[in-house]
């Protein structure tokens, strides 16, 4: 399985000591947008509520990741993968999330395989086209 960022995935951000504040949370604009789309149109969201949600989401990611990485440690594996995340969600009581996540993971893997086939067929095509596909599939996301 390919790691995002190549060799940089081996870096441990904790070695730097201080974690940049902006790197600790997901962008407030993205979080606010997701909150808004689940609420009625006339609902308003205070900035403090968005900030609290930012903290909660980061805690959720850390909580689930810790459970997943503990499983990897016990099984003497070094890479946390999608299955580990799904397992951790179910273990921690987020059963309702684990099943849609497994379906999402399967769909993602199918797209990956399909994309690799397409990539092979298009070997002679322009680099721009491949870059465009790769951009769509593994976009890292540019927050507003």
């Amino acid at each position: 399985m390919e790691d995002i960022g190549g060799s940089s995935s081996n870096d441990n951000n904790n070695n730097g000591g201080i974690i940049k504040e902006q790197d600790r949370l997901l962008p407030i604009a993205n979080v606010g947008r997701l909150m808004k789309r689940i609420l009625p149109q006339n609902a308003k969201i205070s900035k403090e509520a968005k900030e609290t949600m930012q903290e909660c989401v980061s805690e959720f990611i850390s909580f689930v990741t810790s459970e997943a990485s503990e499983k990897c440690r016990k099984e003497r594996r070094k890479t946390v993968n999608g299955d580990d995340i799904c397992w951790a969600l179910a273990t921690l009581g987020f059963d309702n999330y684990a099943e849609p996540m497994r379906r999402y993971l399967h769909r993602y893997r199918e797209v990956e395989v399909d994309h690799n086939k397409v990539n092979l067929q298009e070997k002679g095509n322009s680099p721009e086209e491949k870059d465009d596909e790769l951009f769509k599939l593994s976009n890292r996301g540019v927050g507003l």
Binding site: M1, E2, D3, I4, S9, N10, D11, N12, N13, N14, I19, D23, R24, L25, L26, S58, I61, S62, F63, T65, S66, A68, S69, E70, R73, K78, T79, V80, N81, G82, D84, I85, C86, M101, Y104, L105, Y108, R109, S138
Partner: peptide, 19 residues
């Protein structure tokens, strides 16, 4: 954020952040 969740988080597959 995953990386910062613990000392023992070594490598993360490309699919994990997507999930």
């Amino acid at each position: 954020i995953m990386k910062n969740s613990g000392e023992d988080v070594k490598m993360i597959s490309g699919e994990a952040p997507i999930i």
